[in-house]
Design a protein around this nucleic acid. Structure first.
Length: 833
RNA sequence: GCCGGCGUGGCGGAAUUGGCAGACGCGCGGGAUUCAAAAUCCCGUGAUAGCAAUAUCGUGUGGGUUCGACCCCCACCGCCGGCACCA
């Protein structure tokens, strides 16, 4: 029977049951132990696990299991980001309640996760769609409101005509809905916002001191926050008492202003044109812009358009009278919604000026540019010209000087602007946390009393997928009494963006069953921050910035010590697979149904088992890179586990004899020493690669090398204590990657304890020191010979041995040795001429 | 356009501080075992030349620094990802 493949299905089911019965991964706070919080981004319960999930959770599980064995008190929880649109769509399509649908999916996926042997503390499971979670979501929202961080505002918002809901700026991708790719339109609605802009500077500053985050993610957040320093400058509008305020990063170009531009949505537009000959044309233009999608409006290739509005502005530095236009290349929601245009030094203004025949006045002399014959705007640094008293200054100096002078005259001020907008959180959907706010004609917006939380989602609603929030169709939900005056009042009928739910779930895990508070600060302070967070890079901005914002606010509210939620972040790469396209080309792409290159985790588990699936996924590529799925590669990982299985079985049946206890091995023969060296090298490699730098692929390859060495070793004279030690260590090292098989073999060896609790091995530094070391002999940097030298040989000794080498004379061939470079235990290089 | 990353055998990938390029795995070739096959075990496997020892070339391209460069510097090419009329 020894050549049979091992029974992974039986072994995996057996150990999953035992771990559950023994509550192997239940975690409690223990002040005497160093904690380690490892977290994988919780999934939306779609019902089916995909390979991306398997990769994410396998990475987290190796880290969690390793840290536990290394002696840490490990928190490794799992839960469900279970509010969201798919449940509601399923409700419309299949006439099934979103809760029923979601709950079934959570049950299914929980079983799939358990079948992978992941070491979660399931007692801490959270589901954001359950009242015991969203009650505290509502409570947190109210704390934001009380602190002035939540407000309702009537604003043009991003509207997805297909999903029939508003979207946050972050959810608009290339002018289209990130989910259904329908072009986004603008719509005026009264919506709730969170004041994330109050935290813009802090969100930005902390990034500078987050070495555990990938540069890519930090840079993406930095750009998203988009801090820019400049000045607001006041222009009088000729013939009126109005002052037009613009934002510019280039006050140095004020002498080059030849016209002004207002955004079509700017409030001055109607006021200045009402009843004038320009009104009709301007209104037509504004109207046309309102109907354009975001995509059309922001398209770069588009020709500039605009309308003169019949008024002029006065340049505060030189009194020049310049025409005012409206154009959709100026956005209402950045800066002041109005700009001063300097066509000589801004490409957009240059294009507009060319089209409308406006003046182009250069005011900065940029090296290597012919200012009299500009073909594009001159953006670079240079010396000020045509700029009155500022002429001759470097333009960087002029920025500072002109800003100061404007400030002292009350005509402008230094200003910082951010691209980051406040977070629009209202959603006209059913399957989300009800916003716990009540509108009373007398008192205005009032939060629900905290003792009345949760504001439950009503069940008597209709799902039409059209128009207003489905909550309006409930007969019971909307009407209520005002918490302040007791009069008749109405509830907010929109629900929260689900990104709020996921912005604090990592805190709830610390105290998941608390029914008195969102969490106990003492518990949160024990576990937080998350030591290692793992997830897809697609959350680089949205989830990862919202969570940082929440953490900061909750810190400021005195609810937790940590100001940043995630110390270390690992963004895992996608799982891709090659396929042959319709033209017969072999291409690689993300797994997707439409391409037909999807590999289902359940199929792999059925054919090879979870241990193989985990091992392959960790072995095939380093975690942050793309993983190229290979069926042959999976086969190879399976082969390796069988090789381990056969090796241990051969040891138990044919090699071991009756011994149950072994003394510490003494290595006599060269073969012993070689195996012992390999054994300790493997311990060192796996400890560093799996426990430190998270290069699981190289950790696994060193375990493979150890197994190869053991196969060779057992054909010779076997030192039983040594071989026993190697067998046992092998199982310990492999356990975090493939926990079921190793636990089974450990048990078969006769051990009473469990590997998940076993101490991580330490390597013997002295075993890594070889008596003889290979020193490379180079002539002019080229490899000529390999010399076996005693460890730490002196230069003279090595040089003598090198000169004695057969290859030496031949390679030098009569030339003169001008220099000898010796790197101890590594290399000796002769420079010859 | 701006920002970030990546380019190494037939393939996935190693090389942790500038010191043997190609660990480990896949694939491929050969052998053992077998009546035969599967499975397994062992050996080989960057290119070119050679029976061989060995030599030459070789980490996207071109240059540079160095005794020595996949690694550092300069210029360029290609691919991937993000942002983008943000004044």
């Amino acid at each position: 029977m020894r050549n049979d493949k091992y029974d992974f299905a039986g072994i995996e089911a057996k150990w999953q049951k035992i771990w559950a019965e023994e509550e192997a991964f239940k975690t409690v706070e223990d002040p005497n132990k160093e904690k380690y919080y490892v977290l994988e981004m919780f999934p939306y319960p779609s019902g089916k696990l995909h390979m991306g999930h398997v990769r994410n959770y396998s990475i987290g599980d190796v880290i969690a299991r390793y840290k536990k064995m290394a002696g840490y008190n490990v928190l490794h929880p799992m839960g469900w980001d279970s509010f969201g649109l798919p449940a509601e769509n399923a409700a419309i399509k299949n006439n099934i309640h979103p809760f029923t649908w979601t709950n079934q999916n959570m049950d299914d996926m929980r079983e799939q996760l358990k079948s992978l042997g992941l070491s979660y503390d399931w007692d801490r499971e959270v589901a954001t769609c359950k009242p015991d979670y969203y009650k505290w979501m509502q409570w947190i929202f109210i704390q934001f409101y009380k602190k002035g961080l939540a407000y309702k505002k009537d604003n043009p918002v991003n509207w997805c005509p297909s999903c029939q809901t508003v979207l946050a700026n972050e959810q608009v991708v290339d002018g289209a809905c990130e989910r259904c790719h329908t072009p986004v339109t603008k719509k005026h609605l009264s919506q709730w916002y969170l004041k994330i802009t109050d935290y813009a500077d802090r969100l930005l500053k902390d990034l500078k001191d987050m070495p555990g985050w990938p540069d890519k993610v930090k840079s993406m957040q930095e750009h998203w926050i988009g801090r820019s320093e400049g000045a607001e400058v006041m222009f009088k509008i000729d013939g009126t008492d109005k002052e037009l305020v613009v934002y510019t990063t280039r006050p140095d170009t004020l002498f080059g202003v030849t016209y002004m531009v207002l955004s079509p949505e700017h409030p001055f537009v109607a006021e200045l044109t009402k009843g004038t000959e320009y009104e009709e044309a301007v209104n037509a233009y504004v109207e046309a812009c309102a109907h354009k999608s975001e995509l059309e409006r922001t398209s770069l290739t588009k020709e500039k358009t605009g309308e003169f509005i019949g008024h002029y502005a006065i340049d505060p530095v030189n009194g020049a009278k310049v025409p005012i236009y409206i154009s959709d290349y100026v956005m209402m929601d950045y800066g002041t919604g109005a700009i001063m245009a300097v066509p000589a030094h801004d490409q957009r203004d240059f294009e507009f000026a060319k089209k409308f025949g406006l003046d182009i006045i250069p005011v900065v002399d940029v090296p290597d540019v012919d200012l009299n014959n500009l073909t594009k705007a001159a953006i670079a640094e240079g010396t000020m010209i045509n700029s009155g008293e500022y002429t001759g200054l470097n333009n960087k100096e002029a920025i500072v000087k002109i800003t100061e002078d404007l400030e002292s005259k009350g005509l402008g001020k230094k200003t910082v602007n951010y691209k980051l907008r406040d977070w629009l959180i209202s959603r006209q959907r059913y399957w989300g946390t009800p916003i716990p706010m009540i509108y009373c004609d007398k008192c205005g917006w009032v939060p629900e009393k905290e003792e009345n939380l949760p504001v439950l989602l009503p069940t008597d609603v209709e799902f039409t997928g059209k128009g207003e929030s489905p909550l309006t169709t409930s007969k019971t939900f909307r009407k209520c009494t005002c918490p302040q005056c007791g009069g008749e009042a109405e509830r907010e009928i929109d629900t929260m963006d689900t990104f709020l739910d996921s912005s604090w779930y990592f805190l709830r895990y610390c105290d998941a069953k608390n029914d008195k508070a969102a969490f106990d600060p003492a518990k949160v302070n024990y576990w937080m921050s998350v030591d290692q967070y793992i997830g897809g890079v697609e959350h680089a901005i949205l989830h990862l910035m919202y969570s940082r914002f929440f953490q900061m606010v909750l810190h400021d509210l005195g609810l937790c010590d940590a100001e940043e939620p995630f110390d270390n972040l690992l963004t895992q790469g996608m799982v891709i697979k090659g396929y042959t396209d319709k033209d017969g080309n072999y291409v690689k792409a993300k797994m997707s149904k439409s391409l037909g290159n999807v590999v289902a985790p359940s199929d792999i588990q059925a054919k090879y088992g979870s241990d193989t699936a985990r091992l392959f996924i960790l072995f095939a590529a380093p975690p942050e890179k793309e993983l190229d799925w290979s069926d042959e590669g999976v086969e190879g990982s399976y082969r390796f586990l069988n090789r381990v299985y056969r090796l241990v079985n051969e040891y138990i049946n044919d090699i071991r004899g009756d011994e149950t206890e072994f003394a510490e091995p003494v290595c006599d023969s060269a073969a012993d020493k070689s195996l012992n060296l390999m054994l300790n090298t493997a311990i060192k490699k796996v400890t560093e690669d799996a426990g430190g730098r998270f290069n699981f692929n190289t950790a696994i390859s060193s375990i493979m090398e150890l197994v190869n060495e053991m196969y060779k070793y057992k054909n010779g004279e076997i030192n039983k204590p040594l071989f026993n030690k190697a067998i046992e260590t092998l199982l310990v090292l492999l356990n975090p990657f493939s926990p079921h098989l190793t636990e089974e073999l450990w048990n078969q060896l006769g051990h009473e304890d469990r590997l998940y609790n076993h101490e991580w091995p330490k390597y013997d530094e002295s075993a890594l020191v070889k008596d003889e070391i290979q020193v490379i002999l180079q002539i002019n940097g080229k490899l000529k010979d390999k010399l076996m030298m005693p460890n730490n040989s002196a230069k003279e000794v090595v040089e003598e041995a090198a000169r004695a080498s057969d290859r030496f004379e031949e390679a030098v061939s009569g030339r003169e040795v001008v220099k000898v470079i010796y790197v101890p235990n590594k290399i000796i290089n002769f420079v010859v001429k």
